[in-house]
Design a protein around this nucleic acid. Structure first.
Lengths: 343, 343
DNA sequence: GCTCTGATTGTTAGCGCTATCAGCTGGGGC
DNA sequence: GCCCCAGCTGATAGCGCTAACAATCAGAGC
């Protein structure tokens, strides 16, 4: 199992293929085959080789292997701020999927989101000879950056909108927003206000579109949407403005963090949730069920997104261009922050 | 800047060192030097080489370089659940620091925390020939796993407790808990209850110790601490029990997520915060200021932790064994969830 | 003029592995 | 008996790069 230490001599350098070959009494090539294509070696020989491998604690040198095969077994993930729940969860899912397929994951977090930084992230990974890249950056600059990619490396994107020269896995933001808005209308609210995410974020846009489309289809007044920056602080600030307007009875907020701020603003203004105002968030972060009141929100299945993205990338790397699912449907989770419209 | 495409011929294979050498009219070695040790090449020659590099869009092959130098420029980070705020922030900081020093980061997230999984994570990274590893796993099993590491690879740990055969960067959990507890006592509370994290987590233990030590030093009654699992749900469940006991006027909770659950439990029981019960959390997640009421909590500077860990690892890789700071002091952030004891 | 020195460049070899083809064996078909 | 083929193993070469040493050259010193 572990390198033997029972032979008295101190270990000088790590074992290489030739050491194993010598110990097993075969050629280096046979060792290589025993490891990489076991069926092409007689079982008995294979057993001898494996014994030698274990005895010496041999580990293949990936650099040498890559040099000759051209593949590294490493995937790159370019992402913005992996501290946020969404990107972190997606990254996590990609990493899990990658591990199960014997890939490791190399990350390039971006300090800022713009076309240049995306390009830099990709270049940094490419310089490491990754076999493929997943770009998690649901921002319009990402779309922009993706159009200027140097070719020759499999790339897939997550939540990058349409009109992109690479395959994209996305959550149906629009659909999620539609569900949230319909839910509020179905509770008797005359219309629904919206606090959006930053307008240059792809998913923020999708949510605005979904929300607006429902109101328009139903012939409801469409209040102006104010944009936050995803933070609880921005939700609080915008929420204070909304709280002062007694005609506001239903608010759909772009994410759960902002919603937390909105809830506080409403409370400070003495408006009860859901009796006076119904609130619906987006994401379903693990804490959403413990907000006060427990938050009705739209759950994004980031795990599924990550797994699809990995699968799509793997297909491109292997040239097996089967079309996997690329749209993940979010799900409305009704809790207590939404209720019947006050009369 | 970009590979030239003005030469008419279609690009067949990526340029290698010899291609650059030929175009520049020098030997391969000179190109290598121009790239890696610019002062050892005449400026004029260097300029010719760089021109050829740009013209061909040449990128060094890291596998080939690694094969001969023995260094990969890759660091590994082993971490448990990078979805959580703490690990995610630490990872992020490590990655940023690594980037600034021309390292890239490979991640190995663990699905479970036990001795075997830690070993597997390390092995997986080691199999990729990383130059060093940071282990972010503040769990007793990590400590255990660290004692069984195969040697020969620089490793540092984050929050791994004492008694570990590798250098450790840690947040002074004890100190943070002491500050939180003293703060509550200073507000006139007779004693402080504690809801802890899982007992086999190193930092959960440190917080318990700090809390207990203050109560003992002050001769206050030491209530039994109940253990949660870091989740808001567990905080809610444990909080309900505390909420039923009217003698409870001050609670120190092991992290902010659990605190969110506690706040909800108290509210449901009709106990006001901070008028009836003061609550202090730990971590200062970005949302803590928007809890209701805004949360008094202990801020951990994960960024600093990550940077120190990287620096420490780099020192070990380079053999420059200067002692950097290894303890990061957390800071009490007083907001509105703590107040004077009721009489 | 001649040697010596330092700056610059080139040559050789090899890092550890696998692709490719060659060699060897034994058994089946004729 | 002979050939052929499949099954297994080995020899050789080379992936792209850099460490180590060798070679070259101009100018300094005598």
């Amino acid at each position: 199992m572990t390198p033997s230490s029972d032979d008295g001599r101190a270990r000088t350098r790590p074992a290489v293929l030739d050491d194993v070959a010598e110990l097993a009494g075969v050629s280096a090539m046979t060792v290589s085959r025993a490891l990489n294509a076991p069926d092409r070696v007689r079982p008995e020989t294979r057993a001898r080789v494996m014994a030698a491998v274990n005895k010496l604690g041999y580990r293949p040198n990936p650099a040498a292997r890559q040099l000759v095969t051209g593949r590294s077994g490493v995937l790159g993930v370019v992402s913005f701020d992996t501290t946020l729940y969404g990107p972190a969860s997606t990254l996590y899912a990609i990493e899990q999927a990658a591990r199960q397929n014997d890939y490791v994951v190399n990350i390039a977090s971006l300090g800022a989101l713009n076309r240049r930084s995306i390009g830099e992230g990709v270049e940094r990974l490419r310089a490491q000879s990754v076999d493929g890249i997943v770009i998690v950056a649901p921002h319009e600059s990402a779309a922009d950056g993706l159009r200027h990619l140097s070719p020759g490396l499999p790339v897939v994107a997550v939540d990058a909108g349409e009109d992109i020269p690479v395959p994209v896995v996305m959550v149906d933001q629009r659909g999620g927003a539609v569900r949230a808005t319909r839910h509020l209308l179905s509770l008797g609210h005359e219309t629904v206000w919206h606090l959006s995410g930053p307008p240059n974020w792809i998913d923020a846009r999708g949510r605005v579109e979904g929300w607006r489309s429902v109101l328009e289809a139903e012939g409801r007044p469409v209040p102006e949407a104010a944009a936050g920056d995803w933070s609880a602080y921005s939700g609080y600030r915008l929420g204070k403005r909304l709280a002062g307007d007694p005609s506001v009875t239903a608010v759909f907020v772009a994410n759960d963090q902002m919603t937390l701020g909105v809830l506080r603003a409403l409370r400070e203004a003495g408006r009860r949730v859901p009796e006076d105002v119904s609130v619906v968030g987006f994401d379903d972060v693990p804490e959403a069920a413990y907000f006060w009141p427990p938050l009705t929100t739209v759950r994004q299945n980031f795990g599924e997104v990550g797994r699809h993205a990995f699968r799509l990338l793997l297909d491109r790397i292997q040239g097996t261009e089967q079309e996997g699912p690329r749209i993940v449907e979010p799900e409305l989770v009704v809790r207590e922050s939404s209720g019947p419209a006050p009369h």
